[in-house]
Design a protein around this nucleic acid. Sequence first.
DNA 1: CCGATTTCAGTAAGACTGATATTA
DNA 2: CTAATATCAGTCATACTGAAATCG
Lengths: 175, 175
Amino acid sequence: MPKPLNLAFDPVARAQELWRQRWDAADSMAVATSVMRVQQLLIARYDETLRGHGLTFARYEALVLLSFSRAGLPLSKIGERLMVHPTSVTNTVQRLAADGLVARSPNPRDGRGTLATITEAGRAAVRAATDDLVALDFGLTALDSDDRARLFALLRKVRAAAGDFFGTSGPDERR
Amino acid sequence: MPKPLNLAFDPVARAQELWRQRWDAADSMAVATSVMRVQQLLIARYDETLRGHGLTFARYEALVLLSFSRAGLPLSKIGERLMVHPTSVTNTVQRLAADGLVARSPNPRDGRGTLATITEAGRAAVRAATDDLVALDFGLTALDSDDRARLFALLRKVRAAAGDFFGTSGPDERR
DNA sequence: CCGATTTCAGTAAGACTGATATTA
DNA sequence: CTAATATCAGTCATACTGAAATCG
């Protein structure tokens, strides 16, 4: 958990100025650095909160995804949705299964596949953990409703361009 | 490297809808998920690019920081600026030193401390790697100049509130 | 003596490669 | 046969805890 730094200056803005004196794309660098830093700050908060429920953020994400499915999901689907490597999915699901939060079963519609299904204990864990994260407002209380919409839209542009959905290049971004 | 998914829908928006039917803070959740996902997409691109220079993004960040300092920096300062655990700083600097990109020396102004200084090889590596990342525009070509400024400002709000600088709570955010 | 700086030993979660069994 | 699914073995970079040495 990164303790508050209380720096008297914004380290990213400082880096941006120095960068500009030497290289191009200083604004992009500053945005990229900001994304990394915010991710770091947020996930530290989440993991700290989730530790009380025996979860990491990676496991929590998988559990939430499974909580949205009645019949369970093939591991391949989980990996696709969460952008996680196949072997990492196997690992995550095994850990969740070891904790009784998920059940593994052969996929009836594909003899090669495995189906992961959330258990009642899993649903209870998701509920409890989610209550805590919602109470934190996911660490985003600094943003009002408009800010959130704007931030989401901007990040969505980046995701679309990076091939998160709609193919590898930007889609018709409404307008 | 996350291959393009080409999903016909936005997975984060889909999760947001399902979330809203069951819990509060759906917008915050969507923003948080977007941050995680963009970070994942960007760092995969960066690491792929940097691999050609024998660097990871973590090592690259440390090298860039050191390239902005003539006299070198104490490891404690590096950890503070990059929000990295002390033992991780030691590890990172040792790896960079093993590759000849950084030199370690006792801190003349603090007998307990170690000073990390970038070498000429280190500066050359930073230059070459940076050229590649700038050519990518840090994976942010989808954003125009205004978008970047807006995104930076929004993320800055989150950072400030999370204690990245100016203390643990939000500062006077101009207006 | 207290606290800061750094290192070391060891643990842990996760990302990945390469190989393999199984089945579509 | 080829391709997809999942697993296993093993490696790797990183994050962390706890302890210790050194020095301000």
